[in-house]
Amino acid sequence: MPQLDPSTFAPQLFWLLVTFVLLYLAMWKIALPKIGSILQDRQERIDDDLEKAEKLKKDAEDVREAYEKTVAEGRNKAQETIRAASEKMAAEAAAQHAALTEKLNAQTSEAEARINAAKEQAMANIRTVATDVTQAAAGKLIGRDISEADAEKAVASILDEERH
């Protein structure tokens, strides 16, 4: 078996030492730092991108929140405006209604006063006319003139009776 020939040991061991140490140095100083750094760069880049994506997501979330807040505010303001307008209109309507009612009441009481005055007038006229008629009629019936005061008295008694 050629593996067991001791004369081959020395050169093999020598070159094993030389090549292995050189390979170790090449790996340690050149190759591994190179690969390690690019792997680290990549990891950092990925972490960075993830972080960026996270931040963008948060920003979008903020914008959405602000938008919703604005919309809600607008809605509240609109409702406020509508309520104020409707309150104002209601107040105006109530005021106009009150003014109209007052005016109507005034007109009604004025008309009533006028009617009462007319009625009084009419009553007074009736009394005068009735007194004249009574005087004339009594004069015709009994053949003599009766005094105006008597006629007036008679009319007043009847009218007062009726009025009660």
Partner: peptide
């Protein structure tokens, strides 16, 4: 002996 062999 440090000969350069096929192994080396």
């Amino acid at each position: 002996d440090v000969s350069f062999t096929n192994s080396a």
